[in-house]
Design a protein around this nucleic acid. Structure first.
Lengths: 210, 210
DNA sequence: GGACGTTAACCGTCCGGTCGGTACATGAAC
DNA sequence: GTTCATGTACCGACCGGACGGTTAACGTCC
């Protein structure tokens, strides 16, 4: 069976299963104690089987990092599309919504980022590239002030980081407040200039997850 | 020579030297490849010498995590004092300035956080406690809206994280813009309500127009 | 002499990676 | 339609090096 639904609902390919298992293991034992055996076990393959798909531990981490940026990018792109169809799309709002989605659909993915960072700082280049791209996109959107937009982007990063490391201390209500505030700032940033917007309602735009 | 100037200018105590060395090593090879030998070498002690001060690798990480929160707390406290002496102090502004200081005086410290996370997720409890304390403090400052303050706090975290991982892509000018914006938001948050301020300026009173 | 700080040699385990296999599928060749 | 060849996916025993931790032995200052 060829890779059916790479990174979709239920994992089918062994490759995918392994990647997801690796993320789980990182969360459990810490990136430093991640062993191929543990990953193999969690993915229900033998170590040999794992090594067949990822010839070295390093290559496993490369795949993990790539998976991370791919997922972020896909989520942001999807959010952008959704917003564009809905009403005035805005790069920043798409970022916020996209990252929130990204987090929702794969709580462990950011752990992959940490695993990568912990194992080989050089691998972070992939992620750095992703950030650079997003920063540029935001900077090019002349309809809002650079600094304001970046503050929102940074806050999202901070939130993701805390939640990935499980060191966030927000209650659900607090988190909702913060996210709403983020969206409000993004909205302001979008509408504050370039009166191109559709006027009419400010759109409630609820996004909170359970 | 007893611990002379714990965490001050030049390191004198072996303990301190080792901790700093550990941070450097993490930055270079990644937390997962941090070995006692490497740390010992970087700290110019033998492995035995290192183990004398930190009986196990785990204990080294505990110290690293503790050092991280201690440093953050001290920097924030110092900033708070500075602000209080200056004019109307504000919890949030102190946080921003404190974290910025923290970063300046020990670029590698946050690497310790990662090392900790990578080696034993449970150790993160220390950091989580620190965050909880700061969040509470900010929440109790009724002079500003919770969400707005938290956005700033999160943005700072995001910035610290990126810079620690060296994945920040800001130019110096951009960074300056962002930091200034952060301070501006903090200022607004401080001055927006609770007319407790020292009178003088009639207060811009341009709170969030939302 | 004994507390303190430090050293180097050593040991045992753990883990990444290798390697020789197995099982199954495809598909010519006869 | 059975035989053999080739390729893919996977297994698990094994090896060798690396690394955490132990230990016995120093100096050296009081």
């Amino acid at each position: 069976m060829k890779p059916m639904t790479e990174l979709s609902g239920t994992p089918t390919s062994a490759r995918d299963r392994i990647l997801q298992a690796a993320e789980r293991v990182v969360m459990q034992v810490g990136a430093a104690h991640l062993t191929l055996e543990a990953v193999a076990h969690a993915a229900q393959v033998s170590k040999g089987g794992l090594l067949y798909h990822f010839p070295s531990k390093e290559l496993l981490f490369v795949a993990l990092a790539q998976r991370y940026v791919d997922n972020v990018e896909r989520c942001v792109a999807a959010a952008k599309e959704r917003l564009a169809a809905d009403d005035a799309g805005c790069e920043l709002k798409a970022c916020v919504l996209g990252m929130l989605d990204h987090k929702r659909c794969s709580r462990e993915l950011a752990a992959a980022l940490l695993a990568t960072a912990a194992n080989d700082p050089a691998l972070l280049q992939v992620i750095r590239d992703g950030i650079a791209r997003r920063t540029d996109e935001l900077a090019q959107d002349r309809t809002m002030r650079f600094a304001r937009a970046q503050v929102v982007a940074l806050a999202i990063d901070g939130l993701m980081m805390r939640e990935s490391l499980r060191i966030s201390t927000f209650t659900d209500a607090q988190r909702e407040l913060v996210v709403a505030e983020l969206m409000r700032i993004a909205d302001e940033a979008c509408e504050s200039s370039a009166g191109r917007r559709k006027a009419s309602r400010p759109a409630p735009q609820r996004i909170d997850r359970a």
